[in-house]
Design a protein around this nucleic acid. Structure first.
Length: 203
DNA sequence: CAGTTGATTCGCT
DNA sequence: GCGAATCAACTGG
């Protein structure tokens, strides 16, 4: 995918990633659900409060992979978009495995195939993405992880939007913008869940 | 420096 | 439907 394709406003770029394919280690996932994060203006974004060692990658030019670790056990993957310094990114929320099924299947004995990349942490695990892939340039042909334009662009009428999933606070489901994009009718799209603040452990 | 929480998933009820 | 798992980043004192 050309870098220029990823360099516009994140709300414009995000829906164009639907149908795009991410590949690593012979496993490929066709994206069916993404979520936009607009670094500088977006309270829901990790980059909202400026660059830190963790979010430094988000401030690079479009086309870099931002992988973060959360809940003590999961990785989630984003594609950096926009101009360098804008810190916009698109969270890869779900997709359909289109290559490497023989690799993924044995690692996912309890899941149906449509669930292999259903949810951001599952998607990252299925693609074998972790800490060491943070900062990879998806546009560089020499990179281990690559991003391709859709083989066939999805029907625009099938692109649906909603509030973001699982984001709490002012960037959450009462945010003004529908920042989640998905392909209507795809079985791999993750079920929508509003943000649920966890209760503290009882002492 | 200690306390809290999270762009989640899984297993059990 | 609900709670546990599990730790790095961020927050505030």
């Amino acid at each position: 995918m050309p870098r220029a394709h990823l360099t516009g406003p994140v709300l414009d770029v995000a829906p164009t990633l639907l149908g795009a394919v991410v590949e690593h280690g012979g496993v490929a996932v066709r994206l069916t659900e993404v979520e936009a994060y607009d670094g500088s203006n977006d309270p829901g974004s990790h980059a909202y409060r400026g660059p830190t060692p963790r979010t430094e990658v988000m401030f690079r030019e479009a086309g870099h992979l931002y992988v973060y670790f959360t809940y003590g056990m999961h990785y989630c993957a984003n594609v950096v978009t926009g101009a360098a310094g804008s810190a916009s990114a698109v969270l890869l929320r779900a997709g359909e495995v289109v290559a490497g099924q023989e690799t993924v299947g044995p690692l996912r004995p309890r899941l149906r195939e449509r669930d292999w990349a259903r949810g951001p942490a599952r998607l990252a695990t299925t693609l074998g993405l972790a800490r060491e892939h943070n900062g990879i340039d998806l546009v560089d042909p020499a990179s281990l992880v690559r991003l391709w334009l859709p083989v066939q662009a999805p029907d625009p009428a099938r692109i649906a939007t909603s509030a973001r999933t699982g984001v709490s606070g002012p960037g959450g489901d009462h945010a003004a913008y529908p920042w989640r994009f998905y392909l209507e009718g795809e079985p791999s799209v993750s079920p929508y869940r509003p943000a649920t603040p966890r209760r503290r452990r009882t002492p």
